[in-house]
């Protein structure tokens, strides 16, 4: 029987070496791709919820720029996220300013509606609510402390 090993082999070439190297390279590339994709998946699952909060300075800057609706939104998001004054006393004045703004917006609406009301009972009810909002405004202004002057610009929006 003639052995296959008796046949002459081309010099300098061992069969299967080229494809073996290719396999190894392919396995390494696939491993890298798999690790990257697992990292992407892990990041996607871990950072699932975007929590929107603003610092006291950010809220004050927004108020200073006259974007009161945005500042109010920021305050509401903060409170919903547990960023209360008891957690951080620096929020006291910016929150007070936005309480003033919100109360003033409601006071203006109710007082003008009361002025236009034709039914006396309804008029009295609307005036009572307007008065309550006015009290909230005064309370908020006193809580705003040294920043109370910023309420003057808010007043210009409604007058």
């Amino acid at each position: 029987m003639k052995s296959k090993t008796n046949a002459k082999r081309p010099k300098g070439r061992t069969p299967g070496t080229g494809s073996d190297k290719l396999f190894k390279v392919l396995i390494v590339i696939l491993a890298i791709v798999l690790v990257i994709m697992l990292m992407i998946l892990g990041y996607g699952l871990r950072h699932s919820r975007y929590i929107y909060t603003s610092t006291p300075n950010e809220i004050l800057m927004t108020i200073r720029n006259g974007h009161y609706e945005t500042a109010l939104s920021d305050v509401k998001y903060n409170i919903a996220n547990g960023e209360t004054i008891s957690e951080n006393a620096d929020y006291a004045m910016p929150y007070a300013l936005m309480d003033y703004y919100e109360a003033e917006s409601l006071y203006v609406g109710y007082s003008k509606a009361a002025a236009n009301a034709t039914d006396e009972t309804e008029k009295a009810q609307l005036e009572e609510k307007a008065s309550a909002y006015l009290s909230q405004m005064e309370d908020a202004k006193s809580r705003a402390g040294e920043l109370a002057f910023m309420t003057e610009d808010m007043d210009k929006v409604f007058n």
Binding site: V108, G109, K112, A113, N116, D119
Partner: peptide
């Protein structure tokens, strides 16, 4: 009420 107040219409 807010609509009435801001737009000057009656309730």
């Amino acid at each position: 009420t807010m609509t009435a107040g801001y737009f000057g219409i009656t309730t």
